[in-house]
């Protein structure tokens, strides 16, 4: 779902980037109001969950790959506004350091995965769970909310891909950017996400939420459960993040590219021509392209990328937490 550069026109990217500015402004304001220092620091751990989940590629029907995002998970832990900030920062690191997702398409990717996904997922969770105190109904609501969230985000990405040939084409009718119309992009994006990636997102959301609610309940502020007074420690959560980072090479088992993330040559071989905007488009030289290190095996490179990404996210949010209001004396240990 990480739209690379040159699949969308620069004007499309600019429109979504501008549209995201008030969203980010609102989210920053809400996070500053709602979260104290400890919880802003914990947001870095939550962002790390999202970063790692996005590295676990799963094979999708049609020969492509997909991944969970974890946006609804963060929304359930700390609120949708916090999720928007966390996923946006994770996407920025992925784009700048690892070349995953475009620089010009950063606003679009944030709109899909940092805004639509967590807000839809959280709203649906609220609608289904209501004020239910039964854990079963809440878990079902979480699963349905996270499944729907990623699917609506995939639908948005499909529409953004599909409108490109309608809006941007040359005199011969050839697309300048993404060459696939809505009739292709919507089923190609939505069906695999409904069948596989959405299910992975739902399972990951419920499982990780369950783990955090048992080990560090005081860090859950958006959907606190009854027994949040018991001791919280981030040590098990940190160990869990470490285990996930070590397991990320499992994502390499899924062969092939995600739909809409092919290289220019691949697109040319698929549609028979190179869209002009893609051939002469913007190019960003990432430090660690595709989560690989020159001189290291792919597995080691993938683990190292996960470690670097997670550490950067934790550091960024710890530094941001210095500007947050002091934590109340709740007994939570950061």
């Amino acid at each position: 779902m990480h739209i690379p550069d040159n699949y969308l026109s620069p004007s499309t990217g600019a429109v979504f980037a501008v549209a995201m500015v008030p969203v980010w402004g609102h989210c920053i304001k809400k996070v500053r109001e709602d979260l104290d220092r400890d919880h802003v620091a914990f947001l870095g751990v939550a962002a790390a969950f999202s970063f790692l989940l996005m590295m676990f590629n799963v094979p999708l029907p049609g020969g492509t790959t997909g991944h969970a995002v974890g946006g609804t998970l963060i929304a359930l832990l700390l609120g949708p506004e916090a999720a928007c900030i966390a996923v946006s920062v994770a996407l920025a690191i992925q784009a700048l350091v690892f070349g995953d997702g475009g620089i010009l398409a950063f606003g679009v990717n944030c709109f899909n995965m940092a805004f639509v996904l967590p807000f839809v997922g959280f709203a649906l969770y609220r609608a289904i769970a209501g004020k239910a105190l039964t854990a079963g109904r809440r878990r079902v609501a979480m699963a349905i909310g996270s499944w729907a969230g990623i699917n609506v985000a995939a639908l948005c990405a499909a529409i953004e891909f599909g409108i490109q040939p309608l809006l941007f084409h040359d005199a011969a009718g050839q697309a300048l950017y993404c060459p696939y119309p809505l009739a292709v992009s919507i089923p190609a994006m939505c069906i695999p996400h409904m069948l596989v990636a959405g299910v992975v997102e739902a399972v990951a959301t419920v499982a990780i939420y369950e783990f955090v609610s048992r080990t560090a309940p005081e860090y859950i502020v958006a959907t606190p459960e009854g027994d949040s007074g018991k001791g919280s420690s981030l040590v098990p959560v940190a160990v869990f993040v470490g285990v996930l980072a070590v397991l990320t090479p499992l994502g390499l088992l899924a062969e092939g590219d995600a739909w809409g993330e092919w290289g220019t040559e691949d697109v040319a071989s698929l549609v028979g021509y190179t869209p002009a905007g893609m051939g002469q488009g913007f190019s960003w030289e990432a430090l660690l392209p595709d989560y690989t290190f020159a001189g290291l095996p792919d597995v080691a490179g993938y683990i190292l990328s996960a470690v670097v990404g997670v550490a950067l996210l934790v550091i960024v949010f710890k530094l941001l937490s210095a500007a947050a209001r002091p934590a109340a004396a709740t007994g939570a240990k950061a």
Binding site: F293, A294, G295, L304, V307, V308, A311, I315
Partner: peptide, 17 residues
């Protein structure tokens, strides 16, 4: 080469974090 520097950077970032 940069491979060892990246490994050292990753370790340094973990300690910093």
């Amino acid at each position: 080469n940069m491979a060892f520097v990246w490994v050292a950077l990753a370790a340094t970032l973990v300690v910093l974090a």
